[in-house]
Amino acid sequence: MAIENNNVVTLNYTLHTIEDNGEKTFVEQTTTENPLTFLYGVGMMLPKFEENIGGLLVGDKTSFQLAAVDAYGERDDRAIAQLPADMFQESGLPPVGEILPLQDNQGNQFRAVVMEVTPEAVVADLNHPMAGKTLNFDIEILAVRPATDEELAHGHSHGEDGTEGH
Score class of each variant (00 low, 15 high):
M44W: 14
A2Q: 15
G132V: 01
E90D: 13
P95G: 14
V27H: 06
D149K: 12
L93N: 01
K48N: 10
N6Q: 09
A153D: 11
I18E: 09
D20K: 15
A121W: 09
E164V: 05
A85R: 03
Y40K: 10
L66E: 04
L15Y: 08
G59R: 02
P101C: 02
Y13W: 02
V8C: 03
L83I: 12
Q82Y: 13
M1G: 13
F110L: 05
I99L: 15
F64I: 09
K24N: 14
E23I: 12
E74I: 07
D125W: 02
T25Y: 09
D125Y: 06
F38D: 08
G59V: 11
D60Q: 03
N6V: 00
Q89E: 15
A153S: 11
A121F: 12
L36W: 11
L56R: 09
E160Q: 12
V42G: 11
T62L: 12
F49A: 01
K48S: 12
D138I: 07
L11S: 05
A147V: 07
Q106V: 06
E90Y: 11
D138T: 11
E51C: 05
V69I: 15
A81V: 06
M87C: 07
S91Q: 11
N6L: 13
S91E: 07
S91T: 12
G55P: 06
R78H: 10
N34I: 09
E19Y: 08
T37N: 03
D77L: 14
